[in-house]
C-alpha cells in the first residue's frame, strides 16, 4: 500500500511519457530557438506547444492528479492522432473557451458526465483553477485532459509554452541541445530516475520489511515442518520396520511437500488476486486502485518455498536415522 501511494506520480505520467517527451525551456531561452533547433533536427516528428495544469482524482489514502494539456485547438486532433486516442462522445474544445475533454478513466474516477463542470470554482480543493465545462470523453491509453490554450495564457499571464515532442525513434532527445541547462527534459527515464531518487529511503525500508517478512515466514514454515514431522515420526518408524528404505521415505515426503507447496502457491496467488479484485471492485470502487501482482511479487514466494524444501530435506535426514526410528518403534521415545 505504501509503495502504491508513493507511485502516484508514476501512474500520472508513465503512460503519457511513453508516447512523448516534454521539453520545458528555462526562462532565459526563447521558444523560437527551441522550435528552430527541433525543426532542423532529423529526430523531430511533431512538436506541439502546450501549457499544463492538473486535475484531482480520488486515490485510496491520498489524492492523485492527472495532467491537463492546453494547446491550440487545431493541434488537438494531431495530438489525438499521435497518441492513438479517440473522441468517443461529445465535442472537442473550441478556441478561447473553458471547455475540457477528459479520458474515460478520469471521468469514471470523478463520476463526471458531459456537461458537468470541474475546477476550483466548483470544488475549492480542486487543482484546476476556474470552471471548465466537460464537452467530450476520450478513449486513450493515456490518462489526461485537453483544453484550449488561450484561456490558460490569459489566466497564467504567460505567453511561453512547453513542448510535447513526438519523435520517430527513442533516441536520447537531450543530444539535440548544445546547452542542456537551458532545457528541462521530462521523459520516461527522467520520471523513473526522479521517482527512484525521491523514494530511495522508502524503497529501502520496504525492502527491509519484505526481507523481515520473508525471514519470519521461513522461520514459521520451518517450525511448522518440525512439528509436523514430529507428529509423523511414529508413522515413519512403522514404514521403516515394514522394510521401506529411509531414502524412499525421504523421497516420498519430498514429493508430498512438493505437491503441498505447489498447491499453496497456486492457492496463495489466486487468493491474492481475488483480494486485489475485491479491493479494486468493492472497497476502493471510486478510488484509483490499479495495483496488480507482478512477477516480482510472485518471485518473492520462491525463497519461502525453497527454504521449506531445504529445511524439510535436512530435518528428514536428521530425523530419519535407523537408530532413531528403531528407538521410536521400540517405545524408547
Amino acid at each position: 500500500m505504501t509503495r502504491y501511494i508513493s507511485e502516484s506520480e508514476l501512474r500520472a505520467w508513465k503512460n503519457n511519457l511513453n508516447k512523448f517527451t516534454i521539453i520545458e525551456p528555462n526562462l532565459n531561452v526563447y521558444n523560437k530557438n527551441i522550435i528552430n533547433k527541433l525543426t532542423e533536427s532529423k529526430e523531430k516528428e511533431t512538436l506541439i506547444p502546450f501549457q499544463e495544469a492538473l486535475i484531482k482524482i480520488p486515490g485510496i489514502l491520498n489524492t492523485e492528479y492527472r495532467p491537463i494539456f492546453a494547446m491550440d485547438v487545431n493541434q488537438i486532433k494531431l495530438f489525438l492522432n499521435k497518441t492513438n486516442s479517440e473522441l468517443i462522445d461529445g465535442d472537442l474544445p473550441t478556441k478561447n473557451t473553458r471547455e475540457l475533454i477528459l479520458t474515460v478513466d478520469i471521468m469514471e474516477y470523478k463520476g463526471l458526465n458531459i456537461g458537468d463542470y470541474v475546477g476550483n470554482s466548483i470544488d475549492e480543493d480542486e487543482y484546476l483553477w476556474g470552471r471548465f465545462e466537460i464537452t467530450g470523453i476520450l478513449k486513450s491509453e493515456l490518462s489526461l485532459g485537453l483544453s484550449s490554450i488561450e484561456y490558460f495564457k490569459r489566466k497564467t499571464n504567460v505567453d511561453r509554452s512547453k513542448f510535447l515532442l513526438f519523435t520517430e525513434s527513442n533516441n536520447n532527445i537531450s543530444n539535440l541541445f548544445e546547452n542542456q541547462n537551458d532545457y528541462k527534459i521530462r521523459n520516461l527515464n527522467s520520471l523513473i530516475q526522479n521517482h527512484n531518487e525521491k523514494y530511495k529511503d522508502l524503497n529501502r525500508l520496504i525492502f527491509i520489511i519484505i526481507l523481515v517478512l520473508i525471514i519470519s515466514l521461513i522461520i514459521i514454515s520451518c517450525l511448522f515442518i518440525l512439528l509436523y514431522l514430529k507428529e509423523r515420526k511414529k508413522e515413519f518408524a512403522i514404514y521403516y520396520s515394514n522394510g521401506i528404505k529411509i531414502k524412499n521415505i525421504i523421497i516420498f515426503e519430498l514429493k508430498e511437500f512438493s505437491i503441498l507447496i505447489i498447491l499453496s502457491l497456486i492457492l496463495g496467488v489466486s487468493f491474492s488476486n481475488i483480494f486485489l479484485l475485491f479491493l479494486r471492485k468493492v472497497l476502493f470502487r471510486k478510488g484509483v486502485f490499479l495495483a496488480t501482482l507482478s512477477y516480482h511479487e510472485y518471485l518473492l514466494t520462491l525463497p519461502i518455498a525453497l527454504s521449506i524444501f531445504i529445511t524439510l530435506f535436512f530435518v528428514l535426514k536428521l530425523y530419519l536415522k535407523p537408530s532413531k526410528l528403531e528407538n521410536i518403534i521400540l517405545g524408547d521415545y
Binding site: K234, I238, L330, G331
Partner: peptide
C-alpha cells in the same frame, strides 16, 4: 519377516 512390537505402535 514382520514384527509386532510390545507397544504395538499404530499410526494415530
Amino acid at each position: 519377516i514382520s514384527l509386532m512390537f510390545q507397544n504395538f505402535p499404530l499410526v494415530g
